[in-house]
């Protein structure tokens, strides 16, 4: 249940998406995310998590329903402008291979026309934040980094223009369990420092429970349950949710 405190940062109302080839990826999703909250989108492969995330920054345009960000309908404004003010961490990082770490992190500030001093200062600050010493890493190319380091750079890049909202699509999916656990702790640390609204896609229930305040369980384009982590564990809404929780506990 959402409380009626401040206006939600993201509001999805009855969002449906049918792709031109007929695939029904989203079948009427309603989800509100408030300021400062971290919501995890959980579901099996093909359940529509990425599609849902992409409908927020208009990489996908819903067939019906409404998406609002900070109270404004996203389909009313310029999608380019919208995307520049929403942080995005794609699966596998999606760093530009021909750009240095520094340039990658400074991508959005550059698009926004920041002066280079300001951009450099910001880049350095962010690299420090994600634990990559600028002196060592700023001039390196993505190819020379480890998987974990690349995800850190991708995260720094998403935060560069200090957006209110950051979307993360399986940001740690490609990391080995050990690295992932380490980065989870750091993630919680960053989160507490930054005061952002985060929407995080994952198919790992443990990750969802550790990192988020609320979890939204998606199944073939529909939400099965949206609840705080405690509530989800203590009162799963149905057999399906119980099933994926069970699998998590058994796997753990």
């Amino acid at each position: 249940m959402t409380s009626s405190k401040p206006a939600p940062v993201v509001e999805l109302d009855e969002v449906c998406k049918q792709f031109p080839d007929g695939t029904q990826a989203l079948g009427g999703v309603t989800l509100h995310v408030s300021h400062g909250e971290t919501v995890a989108l959980v579901g099996e492969s093909g359940s529509g998590k990425t599609t849902l995330l992409r409908s927020i920054n208009r990489l996908v345009d819903p067939t019906s329903g409404q998406v609002r960000v900070q109270g404004n309908r996203v389909d009313a404004g310029d999608p380019i402008e919208l995307r520049r003010h929403i942080g995005y961490v794609p699966q596998n990082g999606g760093l530009l291979p021909h750009w240095t770490v520094e340039d990658n992190v400074g991508l959005v500030p550059k698009l926004l026309g920041w002066k280079s001093d300001k951009r450099n200062a910001r880049t350095r600050e962010l690299l420090e934040l994600v634990g990559l010493a600028p002196a060592t890493y700023a001039a390196r190319y993505p190819k020379t980094l480890s998987g974990g380091q690349r995800q850190r750079v991708a995260l720094a890049r998403a935060l560069a223009s200090d957006p209110e909202l950051v979307l993360l699509d399986e940001p740690f999916g490609a990391l080995d369990p050990l690295t992932r656990r380490g980065i989870h702790d750091e993630f919680l640390n960053w989160k507490s420092q930054l005061d952002k609204t985060l929407i995080l896609v994952t198919h790992d229930m443990e990750e969802a429970l550790r990192l988020s305040d609320r979890v939204a369980v998606l199944r073939t384009g529909k939400l099965e349950q949206v609840a705080t982590t405690d509530e989800l564990c203590s009162r799963p809404a149905n057999e399906y949710v119980r099933g994926i929780l069970g699998r998590h506990w058994v796997g753990a």
């Binding site: 995307r83 995005y88 596998n92 530009l96 991708a154």
Partner: peptide, 11 residues
């Protein structure tokens, strides 16, 4: 993936 990220970040 790089192209996708470029889109997503507002190029």
């Amino acid at each position: 993936e790089a192209v996708e990220a470029a889109w997503a970040l507002g190029m």
